[in-house]
Structures are given as structure tokens and as C-alpha cells.
Nucleic acid binder design. Structure first.
Lengths: 325, 325
DNA sequence: TTGAAAGCGCTAACAT
DNA sequence: ATGTTAGCGCTTTCAA
């Protein structure tokens, strides 16, 4: 096999610093239980910097029996600005534990394969793994497998409930639900719808009228027709895109939001703020989630000595109602 | 160091199949120049499957001197549906060469660090790397560094030109440009604007009037005021989000698109199709780009024997004008 | 056609 | 306080 031009190794650094390779390893890893004099430390560090030394990850992983790689699985998940911020945070927090985050966006390949291919020691997802997948991931070498929505469907339902509550608080007593066209995760869709239905039930209202809404004004208008026929006066949409499509459908029928039918989305995408009319939506505040998730991962990899924070609510972002009116 | 529970190794497979570990390696890698009888092959393959054997990536990389990991850097790039499709394709095509794709979405960490941390043998980006970064990546162990927009800024400018051409074809003779609020890649922004300016110049029109537009109807209206004062009748926006903000600004001022001011975006995001009024936009067709990019990467890693396809135009997606009217 | 053996660059016991 | 040494699991040369 063709070999890559060989890089600087820790032996090179050792030679440069005039110490043994072991000492280099100790210094660079801050290995505890070793007493390295400051002078030696400095020499090693300087040599490493001078040579622009970077340990070879594969050698480290092989020797240590574990890699520093954390894999975040986001198959087919649209990356909203919010989620971006979360990823940013998560990566930064992991880095403090010496862990590196990579993401997997493609759906094609079996996750365990990829997991093995990058030698990830932890795999994290924002939706629960089914047991079979979790097992496969463990067999593929992942020590930590964290489906961060593991608390169950409560969180998803809560989104639907919050939407419904808002619409109901506007005095609407017959609700519709806009299902996304295309192929969104059916599990998510159903859970959110269930939340809306639950809130309706709690308020003594009838079941929400669910209709699929494609990203097309004309198609959305058909759904609107149905809702009008059913005297629906408020619509909860699966996401902001779908909600904006509903807005377009209403516009096409000469109806106005929120006067005729109030609409609320989910996601707080940028365009929701400047849609016509402005859209009410549920935003996610991932503020501290990245850090918490990183802690959980590090803890399960035995990388922290401090007391492990409760895993409760991890990656259950705070929900924020952004009412437009 | 705590060791992970040890996984199945190729020696286990060798024992199970009753052959040497070397033979297992030969069979599993389809090493050329070796003559393994079908019977042995079968035994090894079966044993591997029976044990659910997965080679340890770090050991492979260490021994082979190169990993199978390709890193796609997408720092802060919003992942549109189009881009998702591209990533999907790219990953699938890479897999055919035995390469695994991981993506890097966070901006915080220096790319070379991450590159070294995952031991990537190739790093790909959709925008050019500056020389310094490219060098750093090579030193970090990347054999292949591919800034896929490397053909220069022509592609980005072409986007602006296409926008301007459309607006001009609508009979508008004074153009505005809507700069994105927040922190988009200034390089991209300027290149696209340059494209608009170039097209204006070619048509004998004045320089486009550039204004920043935040994601807020009121803020957008201020930009609109400026454009009206300058007799602008057509606006090219950096992206669809900004374009939709402009639409909101127009609406707030009682102006109509495209009658008073025509607007065109970039990105073909889902909401553009159902904005009010519907937005014209420039879409990207990544149809074959994923496969081509994968081929280029594989070729540069000497993984292909066939003639290397021309690198021309790689990841220069076809541009598609989606006129709304 | 197969196997033995020597590393790949690093970590971590175990000396010194 | 530092060095010696034995692997980690695999690829690949060379010998059988």
C-alpha cells in the first residue's frame, strides 16, 4: 500500500527535546501520577511546537483502546440556525474534554458501519435509538450510545401542546393540524400531533383536523378548504415551512391570518419572522444543552471526576413561544 | 487507562475459520496479487459474518499509513435540502471507494486540529481553502485537500450575474443588492455582489445600490426606502432569507413585488415557493457533483486505476433560475 | 496457496 | 524523574 509521507512522530519530538519518547507522551497527555519537572515539560512542549507535532490519532486510539471521536448522527435532519448553535456548543464543550465532534448527515449508510469506520467511542443522536441499533453500535465499538431524546415522547408532545395552547388562548375552539408533505420522521410528526390532540382534549375541544400540506400554495389551499369546511379557526403546523405554506394557502383563498384562521409553526426559522403575515412559532432554546450533553458523554466515558450531572432533560431544549401578534 | 471491552479481532476470525490472520486480511481486503481459493475465501467470509467482525479503524489506519476518512468541512453553512442531497450522494459515492464521509459543522475549532483528531486522509470544502489553511491541513496529515470551489470566484460571480440578468430581463434598469445581516462569509457576499455589478456594467447600467438587510420587516423597510429614493426597481438578494425580508419590507411600505420592485433570491429554499408573493430564486443543482467530487478525491488518493476524470467544474453546481412569475 | 514476523506510532506498566 | 519494554490490531513483506 502506498504510504503517506511520514509525519512528525513523538520520537522526533523526543530527540529534539533530548528526552525519551515516553516522557513526551507523559508531558503531552498530562498523565497524572507522574512528576515531570517544569524544565523538562517546557523543553518537550517547545520541541513539539517547533516541529508542529500532532499525535497520530490512529496510533493513540489503538494504544489507548479508545478514540477521541464523538459522532453526532443527524440523518436527514434539517440544520436550522438553532441547531447549528447547539452543535457549535456541543463541539466546544466536548473539546474541553479532549473529544472531537464529527457529524453524520447522510442517511444511506448504516450508522454502525460509519461508527466503526471512524472508530467513534461515542455516538449521539437527538432522537432515541431503537434497541437493535443501539446494540449494533455497541458492537461496532461505541462505548457510549446516547439517544438524547430518550426521556421519551413527552418532549415532542409538549411542543404540540404548547402550540395548541397558544391557538386556544386566542379563542379558537376548532383546531387543524398541518402535516408536512414529503418524508419527515413519522414518529416525530405523530408525537407532535398527539400533543395537540391531548391539549384539545384537555380543553374539551374536538380532535384536530389533520391534513397534509405540500410546499405549494395551491396544494395548501386545498387543505385550507377542508379546514374551512370543518369550521377550523386555528391551525398548528408541524414546522415553520409547512406553516408558511398554510399562510400562502390562506392568502390564495382570500383569507387572512390570524383573523380568519390563526397559524402557528415550529422551529423559529429566520423567514418566519418576515413572513406575511408574521408567523407565531415555537422556538427551541438549546442554550445549555450542548454543554450538558457533552458532560453526559464525558461522564460516561469516565472522563470526569466531578459528580455526574443528572441526565434528566438533556437535549430537551426549553421551548419558547414566539407569538407574532 | 480504562480499556474498552475488547472487540472481535481478525485473529478471532482467523481461528474461527481455521486460517492465519494474514489470510483473513487478504480475503477481507481483496488484496490483489494474492490467489485465495474460493473455498478459503468463503470460510473466512462466513466466519467474519458469524462473529460480526468489524476491523478496527485505528489499527487499519496505523498499519496502512492512511485512514478511510474523508472530512467535509461545512463551517456555518446552512444545510439546504439541495445540499443534503449532495452530501448524500457524495457519501454514497465515496463509500464505493471504501471511504467514509464525516462532516464538520462547527466553526469554533481550527480545522487542522479536527483533521488530525479524526485522522482524515482527505479534507474537502465547498469553498476554497486559503494557502495557509491548506498547508496546515497537509501538515495535519491530510493527503488530499480539496477546496471544491477552487476554479476561483467565477462560480460565485456567475450567481450574481444570473440574478441580475433575470431582473434586467424584466426591464428594470436600476438595481439594488440586499446584503445579509449577521455574519455570512464576506468573501461569498462580495463575490456575488461583484457578479451583479459586472452584469450591470455589461448592460450599461449603474452600480447596484447595496444595503444591509436584517431579518426584520421594519429594518428591511429602511433599506427599501433607500432603494426607492435611488429609483431602484429591482433587487438581487444574497439569499432567499434576505430576499423574503425584502419582500416584508416592501409590504410594510405598501409596495408590491414585482410591480414596484422585483426581487430575486438565491438558494431555492422551501419557503421561497410559498412566500407572498412567490419569490424568484437561483437554485443549485448538485445532481452529479457528489459522484464527481468523490471520484476526484479517490483519484488523488490513488484509489482508482481508470483514467482520472477532469477536475474541471467539480462542485460547480449547475445554476437554475426559478422565476416565480 | 498460506503463514510467520516485522513494524505502524503511540500508551502505560514496569524498571531504574 | 526518566527510560525500557511490551503490546494495541492490523498490513505487508518474505519465506515456506
Amino acid at each position: 500500500m502506498r504510504r503517506a509521507p511520514s509525519r512528525i512522530t513523538s520520537s522526533d519530538v523526543a530527540r529534539e527535546a533530548g528526552v525519551s519518547q515516553t516522557t513526551v507522551s507523559f508531558v503531552l497527555n498530562g498523565t497524572r501520577g507522574q512528576t515531570i519537572p517544569e524544565e523538562t515539560r517546557r523543553r518537550v512542549l517547545e520541541a513539539a511546537k517547533r516541529l508542529d507535532y500532532r499525535p497520530r490519532a490512529s496510533a493513540r486510539s489503538l494504544a489507548a483502546g479508545r478514540s477521541d471521536v464523538v459522532l453526532l448522527a443527524l440523518p436527514g435532519v434539517p440544520i436550522s440556525a438553532n441547531l447549528s448553535r447547539f452543535i457549535e456548543q456541543f463541539a466546544a464543550a466536548l473539546a474541553e474534554y479532549g473529544l472531537s465532534l464529527v457529524t453524520h448527515l447522510a442517511e444511506g449508510r448504516p450508522l454502525p458501519d460509519l461508527c466503526a469506520a471512524v472508530d467513534a467511542s461515542a455516538v449521539v443522536s437527538l432522537i432515541p435509538f431503537d434497541d437493535e441499533t443501539a446494540q449494533a453500535l455497541r458492537r461496532a465499538g461505541a462505548e457510549v450510545v446516547l439517544g438524547a431524546g430518550e426521556q421519551g415522547s413527552a418532549g415532542l408532545q409538549e411542543i404540540g401542546r404548547l402550540q395548541a395552547r397558544h391557538i386556544i388562548s386566542l379563542g379558537r375552539d376548532r383546531l387543524g393540524y398541518a402535516l408536512p408533505g414529503g418524508h419527515a420522521s413519522q414518529w416525530r410528526v405523530q408525537e407532535r400531533l398527539r400533543g395537540v390532540a391531548a391539549e384539545c382534549a384537555d380543553s374539551g375541544l374536538a380532535e384536530p383536523v389533520a391534513r397534509e400540506v405540500e410546499m405549494d400554495a395551491e396544494a395548501a389551499a386545498l387543505a385550507v378548504d377542508d379546514w374551512v369546511a370543518e369550521s377550523v379557526t386555528g391551525v398548528c403546523a408541524y414546522n415553520d415551512e409547512t406553516a408558511i405554506a398554510v399562510l400562502a394557502g390562506l392568502h390564495l383563498r382570500g383569507l387572512r391570518a390570524p383573523q380568519d384562521i390563526a397559524v402557528i409553526g415550529v422551529g423559529d426559522v429566520a423567514t418566519a419572522r418576515v413572513s406575511i403575515p408574521a408567523l407565531s412559532t415555537i422556538g427551541f432554546d438549546y442554550a445549555e444543552q450542548g454543554r450538558e450533553l457533552a458532560q453526559a458523554v464525558a461522564a460516561r466515558l469516565d472522563l470526569v471526576s466531578e459528580p455526574v450531572p443528572a441526565v434528566e432533560g438533556i437535549a430537551r431544549p426549553r421551548l419558547i413561544l414566539r407569538a407574532s401578534a
